[in-house]
Each structure stands twice: as structure tokens, then as C-alpha cells.
Design a protein around this nucleic acid. Structure first.
Length: 109
DNA sequence: ATTCTGACGTGGG
DNA sequence: CCCCACGCCAGAA
């Protein structure tokens, strides 16, 4: 399982390190891993992370700050509620003050 | 084996 | 500023 590939494992590691009340983008993680063009794979990894409860996938959004994957969660607005529960303001599936809550692995990690 | 789509991002017109 | 196309990799039909 964990041998699915270093890439997925790395994504999980970074996602786990996302601080409370913060969010990051797929591209940021992908870039940090050196696969900036494979940002899609990051999302795919998140899909697999469904098995890993330790992965706060709700804290990962696209570079637009939009909750693109909110439909992949159990509920319709479960992702938004989780983010708001952390103090993040979300409006119409879009994170407000995105730059303020944005967590950059390059800068923070 | 082939084809398409998908939780994205960047670049060009 | 808005719209379109391309790249990337992996899994499903």
C-alpha cells in the first residue's frame, strides 16, 4: 500500500503537515515534490487518501482557492463545513482571504 | 491493448 | 480580461 509510489507517500506527508486553519493548493504540493506539472496526480493521491483519515483532504484546494473536490466528500458541503470549522471563510465553494490562509510548503516547510 | 477522463496548472491568443 | 489548448500520470471502461 505505502509502496504505491514515493509520490503518493510524499503527498500524504505534506498534507499531514498542513497546520490547522490553513489550506494549500495541489500545485503547491506538486511543485514542492518537483512534479509541478503533475498537479492532477496530487488530487488523485488525495482520492486514494480517502483510506487515510490522517489526510485532511478538505484543506487542499486548487490554486484558485475553489473547493473543486467538495463533491468527492460524503456530504455536499462537508468540505466547506470542515474548513469553516477551522476558522476559514468559505463562500460559494470559494475560500475567502485565500492568500491569508494559504499554507506554502516552500515557505513554511 | 486502446481510449478517456479526472480533486490542476500554466501559457498563448 | 476571458477563452482555449496542452502537459502529466494513473486508473477505469
Amino acid at each position: 500500500m505505502e509502496n504505491s509510489g514515493n509520490f503518493f507517500e510524499k503527498v500524504y506527508e505534506v498534507a499531514k503537515q498542513i497546520p490547522f486553519g490553513r489550506v494549500t493548493s495541489y500545485g503547491a504540493i506538486a511543485k514542492y515534490l518537483g512534479t509541478a506539472k503533475s498537479a492532477r496526480m496530487v488530487g488523485w493521491a488525495m482520492n486514494a487518501s480517502h483510506n487515510n483519515v490522517d489526510i485532511p483532504a478538505h484543506r487542499v484546494v486548487n490554486r484558485n482557492g475553489l473547493l473543486t473536490g467538495k463533491f468527492h466528500f460524503d456530504g455536499t458541503n462537508l468540505m466547506q463545513q470542515l474548513l469553516e470549522s477551522e476558522g476559514i471563510v468559505v463562500k460559494e465553494n470559494q475560500i475567502q482571504n485565500f492568500n491569508d490562509v494559504f499554507w506554502d510548503p516552500f515557505k513554511e516547510l
